[in-house]
């Protein structure tokens, strides 16, 4: 078995029948046997040096046996290349997921601030009103739904306040008149 062709710059023409990988397997014989697996095609896994004299790495190859010329055409990948690409993709995905989570958390915080805070303020003002202090009003800082609600509550409180003022004025007059009448009674 002779290496007939490979990447430009690499040595060809040498016998490769007895070339072993780091585990002592005959690489090219395994590739040949692998190529006969199914319909003259097949895969083989072995260890191979990326560069001459380098560390042997896990490699996966796929081969085709071409009967008319009695040759095996093969190509392969280093598993570490796949792992490298997986690591890069994981980093990319982690960054994307982190950005999405940060964006979602920010939007949620904005919604909570925009809804909960005005509602808490409304509740606080209504508690003051409940304690018969009708002078409290809501600060309207936004024109959203809660801003409109606050505006309506302010209008309602103003109306209530005016109504109570009107109601309290005749009663005050009545009390004054009653007092003056009682004063006259006392002198008589």
């Amino acid at each position: 078995m002779v290496l007939k062709a490979t990447l430009k710059g690499k040595k060809t023409g040498g016998r490769v029948t007895h070339v072993k990988d780091a585990n002592g397997r005959y690489v090219y014989q395994d590739i040949y046997n692998g190529s006969r697996e199914f319909a003259d095609r097949g895969g083989t896994q072995y260890q191979f040096q990326r560069v001459a004299g380098g560390v042997a790495e896990d490699k996966r190859s796929y081969s085709l046996y071409f009967k008319p010329w009695n040759i095996v055409v093969s190509t392969g990948i280093y598993i570490s290349d796949v792992h490298g690409k997986v690591a890069n993709n994981i980093i990319e995905m982690t960054i994307i997921v982190s950005l999405v989570i940060a964006g979602l958390a920010f939007i949620a915080w904005q919604i909570i601030t925009a809804v909960i805070s005005p509602m808490m303020r409304i509740q606080k003002v209504m508690a003051k009103v409940e304690a018969t202090d009708m002078t409290w009003r809501l600060n309207i800082s936004k024109d959203d739904e809660l801003g409109l609600l606050s505006k309506s509550i302010n209008s309602m409180l103003t109306e209530f306040h005016n109504l109570l003022t009107k109601l309290s004025s005749p009663s005050y007059d009545l009390i004054s008149a009653s007092d003056s009448l009682c004063g006259d009674c006392a002198t008589n």
């Binding site: 007939k4 062709a5 490979t6 430009k8 060809t12 490769v16 040759i71 990948i77």
Partner: peptide, 23 residues
């Protein structure tokens, strides 16, 4: 034909480190 064909894989590098070899 074989000599011509054996020249082709020399130039067929793909995906960075992928290449063909014929034995």
């Amino acid at each position: 034909a074989q000599t011509a064909f054996y020249l082709i894989p020399q130039e067929m590098q793909y995906s960075g480190s992928g290449y063909f070899f014929i034995s």
